[in-house]
């Protein structure tokens, strides 16, 4: 973890890691010396500019070994920004901003399927995403709902998305075009 505040945090990871984070993924970070775990949704992934790679692109007939070196060995940092949407304290999941941000150099983990199902059982976190100024919120909501839906058994997905749609309809009653844009993309068959 590189930096944080109450509304979110940014962490770094290496490009060759097998589990490259995805936009809309749910992740968690420890806070308050392990008393709580902050739950967040990835809203931006930045791969920093690399002058070395730039000049290699211009090289003719680049052998595969050089490409492998760049992809597997080089520590090209990618910065991943996360929007905090809730936290867990003991066995309780709370949807809302955490009392404290995570501390730098803490390790960030991807949420397990059970974590995702438990956290998205209620839909209050959707309001936090909608109020965020960080990102195209409709894109983030679609991606997050797809992850949360995909974590559930097939037979539960339709009900989950219908409940999410109802909550969005309530929250976006004054912005029907945005609501329409989101609902079109969270069809049950996704």
């Amino acid at each position: 973890m590189l930096r944080s505040d109450t509304t979110g945090f940014t962490f770094g990871c290496l490009l060759p890691e097998p589990e490259v984070p995805l936009f809309g993924d749910f992740v968690k970070a420890p806070a308050q010396q392990g008393l709580t775990e902050i739950i967040g949704v990835i809203h931006n992934i930045v791969i920093e500019d690399d002058l070395f790679v730039r000049q290699l692109i211009a090289a003719p007939d680049l052998p595969d070994a050089y490409i492998q070196d760049q992809r597997r060995n080089r520590q090209i940092p990618i910065e991943v920004s996360v929007l905090s949407v809730g936290y867990s304290s003991g066995n309780t999941m709370i949807q809302g901003l955490p009392p404290q941000p995570p501390v730098t150099l803490d390790y960030i983990k991807r949420c397990s399927i059970n974590d995702m199902i438990a956290f998205t059982d209620r839909q209050d976190y959707l309001a936090l995403i909608l109020n965020s100024k960080e990102t195209p919120v409709d894109e983030l909501i679609v991606a997050a709902l797809q992850r949360a839906s995909g974590a559930r058994p097939i037979e539960d997905r339709a009900l989950f998305l219908i409940q999410a749609g109802k909550e969005l309809a309530r929250l976006l009653s004054d912005d029907l075009s945005k609501l329409d844009s989101i609902l079109r993309r969270i069809q049950v068959n996704t």
Partner: peptide, 14 residues
């Protein structure tokens, strides 16, 4: 250090 095995299409050892 880096060991580049020229002639083999494999990532060097760093």
């Amino acid at each position: 250090s880096i060991v580049f095995r020229y002639g083999l299409d494999e990532a060097p050892v760093c």
